[in-house]
Design a protein around this nucleic acid. Structure first.
Lengths: 338, 338
DNA sequence: GCGGATTCTGGGAGCGCTCCCAGACGGGCA
DNA sequence: TGCCCGTCTGGGAGCGCTCCCAGAATCCGC
């Protein structure tokens, strides 16, 4: 339909002509830009500006040895509940880190079952690297891609460690901080509603709590596992209450579960924080609107995206001495619930 | 660093050789696939399968007349609060609609101020079309792109109508339904906390409420404008309460504002829904976890993404008689607050 | 049985770039 | 002055596809 007789915009030769140089030189300026005299470089830049030239991505990719694109892979299933605000934040971070560079961001969603096509695509040279948001840590995708020679950075500590670099919030320390806070409040019976133990985010936050109660000589028996939904948080709270009616604090491994827990506490006539102090995790939008507003542990989702991207690009650039993995600091946010 | 001496995987000629045909024929099968005998087609498909061939995107784009890619443009600013879950849902819908087709999805974020580069990029033939998520309806970006010949579909009704097709939830009807529900409950003094009036989502939801109170012969004076944050919802509720202490119902134009309103009502000793019935909008995750759980209007965010994509692809395919724009139905979700 | 229409196939010229190679130019040193 | 070497530049061969054109194969009716 739209037969604009070939794509619009000037070609590299037009720029070369305008600048009075060859297209090789323009190309040189566009890329590394070494071995070009300042006068020439400026002339080229001027011509580019004047003509509004924007290099053809497909041609660069075809001719060059890199794809000038990276992929952000999100798992379809994981993206249901937890991932929503999480994902948007990560994406923003990724994008921030990418601006200025001429690198395309491809977003893909991995099906739980059949990733055959995606693996073929990604390892087929269409992208230079991949960012994998691995919410359910057991996903073999990062390993597969990495084994095929594609640079990969995982967001969230993977369950199978392997040698794929990852970036994650420091869930362990965050949970530890939260528990220490409860201890410092003088709480004696500190429970936890833990996340699923097949996800490192669940595992690490539980470990942090264990360490926290351990170092304060408190019993570490009040653990109920749950699955990152408000309802499961509610039933976990019920179970805790029936097991230990004397509990006076709960560390809940995710704000969204904390909402369910708060509901049960309220229904049971326990005052928060007077009778039971509650600390959540994530500092999602839910936390500030909860009743009462939730004291929680903040993780910088956007920084996660930025750091993942930085790590990947650094690797692509061939930088040496990169950290295999990065843990991002977390910080307590004090509100009313503890 | 990773000098894999050219990209891995077979080329189209390998496939042609394996199938005993020419590369032209393989190309034909890959694309439209008309004018190819069934026997040949099957042989080619077999060869593709056997070799695990995946066509080189850059080469197709360079040689062909289309880019085989579409862009999803999100505004950086809008993506802060409102957009988070919204965006993930839309993206999922877009992706769903794209699977199977060999079309890349590029995600870009538009800076509020400088979109110069992005416009150049998008209208430079790098993508075949664009999906623009326009949360702040006044954005001229869709018009600009469209004027430059790029097919565009906007998500959310734009403020400047123009001739750019859009897909939106039927905010008007949704608000009308909500208001009618409050009327049917026998409420007499029905207020609204409206959204910003520089966004059509705010305008349309207010219109729906006006229509609803109007057709029930109720006064339409209890309007307070707010800005889609819990705190602004709270202060709006305070204002309403002081202006009309006898109000017995509120339609809040977004769940996130309703949370603030609920807080104020609770603090003021009003029982929800007994004293004041509250209906929200969006059916976000916030609604079900609110206290009390919020009756609200559900908009199908994923369907929005799917529909936008369908509309764009249909246009790219040159289909005739496409609807200029589409309004997606909304549905009431009844919980405890009204 | 033959001409022409119809269906199918192959050849090859680009698409717009990068990157290798060779050549032009100039400056320092013996 | 002559030679070498380093800096800068231009030419041109691809990258892997699509798409146009021409030619081969098949079919049909008279």
């Amino acid at each position: 339909m739209t037969d604009t007789s070939r794509r619009p915009g000037p070609r590299i030769v037009e720029v070369a002509l305008a600048a009075g140089v060859s297209k090789s030189t323009v190309s040189r300026v566009l890329n590394g830009g070494e071995q070009v005299s300042d006068r020439t470089r400026q002339a080229v830049h001027l011509a580019i500006e004047r003509l509004g030239y924007s290099p053809n991505h497909a041609a660069r990719t075809l001719a060059g040895s890199k794809a000038n694109a990276i992929a952000l892979v999100v798992s379809e299933q994981g993206s249901r509940v937890l991932a929503d605000p999480f994902f948007a934040g990560v994406l923003r971070g990724v994008h921030t880190e990418l601006t200025g560079r001429r690198i395309q961001l491809l977003v893909m969603m991995s099906q739980p079952d059949d990733n055959h096509d995606m693996v073929a695509y990604l390892s087929g040279g269409h992208v230079d690297g991949a960012l994998v948001l691995s919410l359910h840590g057991g996903d073999p995708l990062p390993q597969i891609l990495s084994a095929r020679g594609l640079p990969v950075v995982v967001g969230g500590r993977p369950l199978l460690v392997g040698n794929v670099p990852f970036v994650d919030a420091d869930n362990f320390t965050g949970a530890l901080q939260a528990t220490r806070h409860l201890v410092s409040l003088g709480r004696k019976r500190i429970a936890t509603i833990a996340g699923p133990q097949d996800m490192t985010v669940g595992i690490d936050r539980l470990s942090g709590w264990r360490r926290g109660v351990g170092e304060a000589q408190r019993p570490a028996d009040l653990v109920v596992h749950s699955d990152f939904t408000p309802d499961s948080g509610a039933s976990a709270m019920e179970e805790l209450l029936s097991r230990a009616p004397d509990l006076d604090a709960v560390f809940v491994a995710a704000d969204i579960m904390a909402l369910g827990a708060l509901r049960v506490l309220r229904a049971g006539g326990r005052k928060v924080p007077e009778d039971v102090a509650v600390v959540g995790f994530d500092d999602s939008v839910l936390a500030s609107t909860a009743v009462p507003p939730l004291t929680t542990v903040r993780q910088e989702v956007e920084a996660l995206g930025r750091t993942m991207t930085w790590r990947l690009l650094a690797e692509l650039a061939g930088e040496e001495g990169l950290p295999p993995s990065v843990l991002l600091p977390t910080a307590m946010v004090f509100r009313d619930s503890a």
